[in-house]
Design a protein around this nucleic acid. Sequence first.
DNA 1: AACGTCCGCAACCGCCTATTG
DNA 2: GCAATAGGCGGTTGCGGACGT
Length: 180
Amino acid sequence: KLDDDLLRHEEEAAEEIRRGPWTVEEDLTLVNYIADHGDGRWNSLARAAGLKRTGKSCRLRWLNYLRPDVKRGNFTADEQLLILDLHSRWGNRWSKIAQHLPGRTDNEIKNYWRTRVQKHAKQLNCDANSTKFKDAMKYLWMPRLADHHLQQASTVGDHLVPGLPTAYMESSDLSGWVQG
DNA sequence: AACGTCCGCAACCGCCTATTG
DNA sequence: GCAATAGGCGGTTGCGGACGT
């Protein structure tokens, strides 16, 4: 492992492979190159475009950020519902889930799940994959999200979820679930 | 004002599979 | 047919900004 790291760093020094955040210049280079030549064949693309990055890094930057049809910003209530639903069916199959949300990336969905959803599971003192949490989503959060989506201002307070701490249910609002 | 800590996100890594030569 | 290279995926990390003390 240590040897691998040493080797990798030697290679980086020799070949000047950049890592970490992308600069605006790099972004422009990548976008312009793809506009002229298309994407794919990422390693040769990186070389041909003169980017001192791995092909993988270029691919990731393009797919998750630079692609013109990539949607950014908050998930809509619709999208959040869909994520909850698809995740309950498929688990952490992020790219499969992403295929059902046009313009959203697996990375973004994964981040959303880990930051927002897992946080609530933790507050409930349970695992995000537990029956308890799935019940909470199914009978509490999904209805609330759906109601919010339908722009019904009044709260839905009568969804009872066995085993959930009532204090949590009463104190919780939609912040952290419904964005924007 | 200065310091700590929390949180969200972009980007990385390792592993596995697919493609290529 | 196989070894090497590339692509795809899921998990993890670390940076920077927000927030609290």
